[in-house]
């Protein structure tokens, strides 16, 4: 499961909207070993393409070194799909080189709603996971949990008790 602050999700969605129709990409770093996504780092899409994204290799070196110096890891690696669903493509799977990262995909194909889904991609195997949005600004104890983009039968709607 990916637990992530709503403010960071909002910033990722805003980045994806800003770069639409090109794909947007970036990282959310967090303390190594914590699995906490705390520091949003929007990255340049060096490919500047509607169907491909690629970190600039020099920017990546700088950001990865900075994470190393701060004892952080790339907890989330995100990118957008601008005309298709938020599911890893074959290219995404073949490049996925951070086995501990959550691969977050945002689809901006609909103009007024976003599909947000998260995956583990390890040795070519894609496993979807639940996304838990933490509303820290409201009440740190009132953790709300949403299932994004999964089959409706498994969505735990807040109103399900009624």
């Amino acid at each position: 499961m990916l637990s992530i602050d709503r403010a960071i999700v909002d910033a990722i969605v805003a980045h994806a909207r800003r770069d639409h129709p090109d794909e947007a990409c970036g990282v959310v770093a967090g303390p190594a070993g914590s699995d906490l996504a705390t520091r949003h780092i929007p990255m340049e899409n060096a490919a500047r393409s509607m169907t491909f994204y690629e970190f600039d290799s020099m920017e990546q070196l700088r950001v990865w070194r900075e994470m190393d110096d701060r004892d952080e890891a790339p907890v989330v690696i995100y990118h957008s799909h601008t005309a298709t669903e938020a599911y890893p493509s074959r290219t995404d799977v073949s490049f996925a080189g951070e086995p501990d990262a959550h691969y977050l995909l945002v689809s901006t194909r609909e103009p007024d709603s976003e599909e947000i889904r998260s995956f583990r991609i390890v040795a070519g195997v894609v496993t979807e996971e639940k996304v838990c949005i933490l509303d820290a600004g409201v009440d740190p104890h009132a953790v709300q949990s949403y299932m994004f983009g999964q089959s409706p039968a498994t969505v735990d709607y807040e109103c399900s008790g009624r």
């Binding site: 490919a47 005309a83 080189g97 951070e98």
Partner: peptide, 12 residues
């Protein structure tokens, strides 16, 4: 470092 890249499905 692992290259970080990818993109939309091939048909797109």
């Amino acid at each position: 470092l692992p290259a970080v890249a990818g993109g939309a499905p091939d048909f797109a």
